[in-house]
Design a protein around this nucleic acid. Sequence first.
DNA 1: GTGATGGCGGTTTTT
DNA 2: CCGCCATCAC
Length: 733
Amino acid sequence: MIKAQTPPYLSGLNPPQREAVEALDGPVLVLAGAGTGKTRVLTARLAHLLHTGRAFPSQILAVTFTNKAAQEMKERVSHLLGGAPMEGWWLGTFHALAARMLRRYAPLVGLTSDFTIIDADDQVRLVKQLMEAENVDTKKWPPRAVMGTIERWKDKGLRPGDLSAQDGGDMAGGRAVALYAQYQARLKTVNACDFGDLLLHAITILRDPAHADVLAEYHRRFRYIMVDEYQDTNVAQYLWLRLLAKGHNNICCVGDDDQSIYGWRGAEVGNILRFEADFPGAKIIRLEQNYRSTGHILGAASGVIAHNEGRLGKTLWSEADAGEKVVVRGLWDGEAEARFVAEEIEQLQHKGWKLNQMAVLVRAGFQMREFEERFMQLGLAYRVIGGPRFYERQEIRDALAYLRVTAQPNDDLALERIINVPKRGLGDTTVQNLYAHARAQGISLYAAIEQMCAGGTLKPKLRETLQKLTGDFERWRGMIGNTAHPQLAAQMLDESGYMAMWQADKSPDAPGRIENLKELVTGMAEFESLAEFLEHVSLVMEAQLEGQADDAVTLMTLHGAKGLEFDAVFLPGWEDGLFPSQRSMDENGVKGLEEERRLAYVGITRARKRAVISYAANRRIYGNWVNGLPSRFVEELPDPHIDTHAESGLSQSGRSSHWDSSGFSGAQRVPPPAARPMPERVSGAGFAKGNRVTHESFGTGTVIHVDGNKLDIRFDDGNQKRLIDRFVALAEA
DNA sequence: GTGATGGCGGTTTTT
DNA sequence: CCGCCATCAC
């Protein structure tokens, strides 16, 4: 038999990569270090399975963590195979795939196939309700924390029945397990699931001997399983995978234990560390050749991560040049640090580097403000990743709640959300009464309303209001199927008075909200049906793409940066307590510290050519000045790979002991609390779109967009900048 | 039902 | 210091 020539997707792979692509049978763990071509291997492997005829697309289960990763893989495989659309394959996130299974077998766990998927907000509201009904002090135990405990149980695959009362410790006055049971019961009553349930229910079905036929069916179907980012799987996901892989064990997991940074939300590094024990005979393949970073950057990153215990161990190497050493710089305070970073960025920009290829990666969101302010002052284009997302905005969630109740009247959480929005005179007391009835009868809120209206104990006025509301929903529900869903949505927002509510609202953000609502309605057209649209928003809480300047510095958290790469990466705030975060260390001890260290590793390895680490001696945190010491991670950076004094040329002994007081402008030390020159103009002067404004260095321009105190201004010289309002003044008429 | 006020807490976040 | 809540007064 004549072998076809090497298929294109195999060419250019290095030996371990190729081995990972071709090892199709049995369990395989691909330990893919940062920048070692993981995605390339995954996609080539998929292509290989299909190309060699080992499997049809429908026989492969390919799992990712994010929709973005799933999308990317879909596109790349399709491209590798000549653009053919891959029909019927199971490629998606754990949650999307589990939801797909569950839609089909929902009755086996007491749901109907049109169950609702509730979001984080609904989860907490439900827990809070239950806590209040149980007289649990919500001050002492915040509902969020109780919900967190429940979620961790779900992450571990534990249902209320698998726990005993003491497992909750004193959380919620020792009632956490009971609350968990009630929470689950309530979800069942309203035919809903939370994210954790998607996997939990799926596991429940797959491991129930009574439904062995279901498992058998999936075994027949999925001959190969592939998993991305395995280090981020939780126990529930692991159990789900194990059940599905049982028998053939053709499972290939790709991951990097050194990049496990989601332990706090249930990820178990243990899954990847234990792989060989879990899947006997597993082949372990290490991808260690890095194609991304220079030698010094790799050396610095490796030096830091080497301080962690219990690693599987990899030695990254590169054929690339050593490049520049990692710059480490101590600054006087947070402001000086922001000035320093901005200055460095501008210098690189002058050398021809693209802002798009630079990123500032912080440990926590609140650190971004200092940089934003400085960038705005300078008119340096930047984009913030990870703000509030489209589907999380209040008005969008309200609109979705209307749609949810229309599609599924038993969706209590949704109904509760909008029952009095806009105001209909259905206040707390009324809602509590309705709920009391619902709980007593074990029915949904909507059903309770119908029953009570039929009863006749209600005051006429109230009854009229409620009947109007249910009547509206009946009417809208009747339109499903015979009216285009975007039109249904538009009509609903109109007839409910929701749109009118915002139109009547005089607050400055009301127009923006109306815009968003319109955008929501327009966006719905891309989906086949209302149900499909709702499924999408439940499972794909995608960030909204904002029309920002094309070339801009990226500002985001270290967590958000995983999987990305930039020519230049700035890592500010390396002070003990901030990074590594004090809380992490207090709450999780060495484990917490090690996860922080992995975060440091992730941060450094994002850089292709230049990494700049900085720390400040003084920082204002929550209003008061605190002085900090350089992060222990700074000490862990191996000397040969770092340059502590990029510009100032001060003495070079013990690096923690001297701060670069010269800054880059030679300013002398200023006692932190001293009055600093603050711009006189106050924020919130009420600029509006269309205002003519002036700025000291940019001249006159027109405000084209207002976002809180940030203004997008098109200057008369053609430049567009984003600035803080207090740096501009209204132009003289 | 709404607006004002005081207290408190304050990482990381996808699905 | 700032923003979110819960509570209170109307």
